[in-house]
Design a protein around this nucleic acid. Sequence first.
DNA 1: CCGTTTGTTATACGCATGTATAATCGTGCG
DNA 2: CGCACGATTATACATGCGTATAACAAACGG
Lengths: 219, 219
Amino acid sequence: MQPARRLYRRESEESRRTALISATQELVAEGGPEAATVRAIAERAGVTPGLIRHYFQSKDELTRAAYRALMDGMTAKGSDAIEGVGAGPEERLAAFIAASLRPPVLDAGAVVLWAGYMHKVRSDPDLMAVHEAAYLAYRDTLQRLIETLPRTVLPGQTRAEAIACNALIDGLWVEGSLLPATFAPGEVITIGLSSVSAILGVNLLEHTAMLPDFGKTTP
Amino acid sequence: MQPARRLYRRESEESRRTALISATQELVAEGGPEAATVRAIAERAGVTPGLIRHYFQSKDELTRAAYRALMDGMTAKGSDAIEGVGAGPEERLAAFIAASLRPPVLDAGAVVLWAGYMHKVRSDPDLMAVHEAAYLAYRDTLQRLIETLPRTVLPGQTRAEAIACNALIDGLWVEGSLLPATFAPGEVITIGLSSVSAILGVNLLEHTAMLPDFGKTTP
DNA sequence: CCGTTTGTTATACGCATGTATAATCGTGCG
DNA sequence: CGCACGATTATACATGCGTATAACAAACGG
């Protein structure tokens, strides 16, 4: 009696690919890129290592797919945030910012995941293109929201403002995720909203009534 | 005649340690953490792999030392920037910000290096302490510079402002380093100074006369 | 209900990694 | 000048990695 061969079920290509991609993301988020080995990914996804090469030409291709999925997911979260809320420009901008500074976007695992891919982004032109597209898409959404604000602006002004707000949000995202104990609950969102308000010359804190998990920490 | 044993010179402990640390940093900056193998580090430092274990108990200890050196170096750059310049609070703050958004601090290698250590920072309490100390030191310097500005402030205001300015600078640092082609020369510094000005309610762009490599891109 | 297809597992290979230990030789001290 | 210490090199080892390939079995069509 030899060790029985492992039982399995056939699944759709899509479900297997997403399972492998999710497993990769989880492992990188937990233990950095070096923890995402072929064997660990397979175990997490509930398959054996060989199957990875059946769905991805190489581990590098799986890596690229996981990065693409990460970036798509994060930009999607931002778009979702401005879907439901009321039509006021300030409301929409405030919701967009708050969504980026709250879980699940504000999350140490997400930051580690993002950081773990950074050097691959720089060396792989394909990943660089994905990164640039996601970054510019986010910044573009931000800029469009800024342009809808009731203000009179100089030409070229909103571009610089969008860059600044994007950088501010990114920085708060990293630090709020990495050192959550350093901030009071909701403090990161409050700081983000008031700082963006200062940069743009508006008052977003007056338009936070509809935001979930907010209002209790701001006087 | 067998292959001659490699000639060598004895060197001080300090020079060997710094050589190994620098080699580690260079390799991580160039190719990510996975490129910094024991053999590659030794070759870059001009020694053989075994010597690493003579000066560091393990590769992990060398890694920790390299991260500490990175953080110390980056905070030192900021302190240097406010040493020479004139006594005006605005000048000093402007110089501090500009120094963080200009090479050698603004550099893709530095960002990749910083990002490459991120997951180790989260999992290793020792590195976490180093990170937190460096982050808070930087923020503290920033807050002290902000407090010297001629303004009347509410209690607790400067803390939030320091967090915001720190996040803004960090975000510009990352994006300016990773996508330098996206920005006009000096644009990152200009945006940083004008945004911090807006957040703090001052005008730093009027106090950039003494900044090197500046003034030509701002009207 | 059988045969074919192909998703999935199992096994093996070559290589690189971090570490341990022994051999060597540069160097400061007596 | 010689000798002993230890900084440095050399070699070896176990392990884990990504990859290649063959064997197997689950599901579907006939």
